[in-house]
Amino acid sequence: MKKHMLVVIFTFFASVSYSQVMFDITTPFKLWLLNNEARVFSSLNLDQKLIWEMSLPFSFIPTIRTENTGAEEELWNTHRKYYRLLDDIQSIYTMTKRFGNGRLSVLTKQARPEIWSVSMFNFFMPLIQNSTSARYRENWHLTLLKALRLDAERDYNLNQRLHNSTSKLSSEEYRLLKSYFSNFSALYPGNTKIKLLQAFLERSNRNSTPIGAGIQDLLKPTQTITTDDVEDNALAELEKIAGMGESEATGTFEDTPQPEDDMFNIW
């Protein structure tokens, strides 16, 4: 029994990580930016040491070390905002790809765990189902959302979530991020994921078709069950803008260009 439980748990976590890898659209850009930062950090660090050696040229001056915080700190702060925004975009995209078609919502409604879990007691206590089903269903649903790392309040309106994330950037920071995306596209024209990122960023400023419409029923389920797939027009539109083919949209990353052969060789 324990072995079976371990297999179930392992499969669940493996599927969660696999889905994150499958629908990954931000890692190549993040690695590129991080690698550039690392190269610059390394240079600035060594150069500052050398410049300090020349800073007090008279032997009668004590070694006064002064804190010299430069403008680059502001740039790194801006980059930290970008990483948070990219994580949010990644989370929205992964969620939409996994649950956006509404199939899981239908499945959970059909499963009715609140009925079958107490069905054996129906004969002895016929009213048990009525008294327990609502709470069973509610708890089961909350546990399911927790296991899927979903938050009903945060994820119900993904357009709003995307807008909240991008509104943390100032107009200057927003323009700079767009320039970084353009630079990355020019360096790696084969990478279509960046176009999807660009499309997400531009979409955050518009009130248009909601992203991940199928998730809403999973987060706050209604009583009706529709077995048809919910079409996520917004995501399809973004993927079309990005020029992503079927294989890319489903997350095959074999052809993703790598920024450099040796990402961590900063010298």
């Binding site: 403008a71 502001e74 740039l75 700079l176 630079n183």
Partner: peptide
């Protein structure tokens, strides 16, 4: 001390 960083046309000074 004064410093500046220019990033793709965007300038920050300190």
């Amino acid at each position: 001390s004064s410093s500046s960083v220019t990033s793709l046309g965007n300038v920050k000074t300190n």
